[in-house]
Amino acid sequence: MITVNKLVKRFGLKTVLRGMDFAVQPGEFVALLGPNGAGKTTFLRILASLSRPTLGEVNIAGFKLPGEASQVRARLGVVSHLPLLYGDLTAEENLRFYARMYGIANSQERITEVLEMVGLENRRRDLVRAYSRGMQQRLAIGRAVLHDPEIVLFDEPYTGLDQDASSMLDVVLKTVAAQGRTVVMTSHDLARAEELATRFDILSRGVIAASATRRQVKKTNLLEFYKQALAG
């Protein structure tokens, strides 16, 4: 579903990704873990076609980046720590706007379906600026899956959420994954990653330092695996 070969990303003289290889199979939930500055967000922005790779190959759902970015974007949903929503529009208006941008016909039906999924059906006519951070993040997930993408990228989705909001987000994330989508999530929260992901990749100094499935990690624990990967 996602294949990345020898990916390099430079910002001026600074090299963030140094020949990174990465692959995800359809339906996998991959947690991309790593310290601050490891290049997680940069990597996700390249997958989302928001940033152009300096060198290397990126292939998503059979389409190459950056050449076939439009086809990739149609198959991709992105949730970041920013909501990507307009505060002066209602939840329904925000989703209607994105439905138009993605060319979704019969959008009303789909909008209702998505709002029910993220538990905001009864707040659909409220302005987004009146939403709590947790509600905005749930709506952001609704926005990301509105066009029914095969792949969803989550960049630190729990940033700024309290315990209750995080728990509610867990439920929504599990629902998204249970729908058979391929998910790549960056996070600092090892406990949440352990609960949700089927595979764990540790990104350190611009390359994948270690990779393990849930079964492999269960034998030790994720924290130990993470520390060993960073030390190595």
Binding site: S49, P83, L84, G87, Y98, M101, R143
Partner: peptide, 10 residues
Amino acid sequence: RGCLDGLLLA
């Protein structure tokens, strides 16, 4: 609010 990214992702 990151909405420019939202537009660019379409």
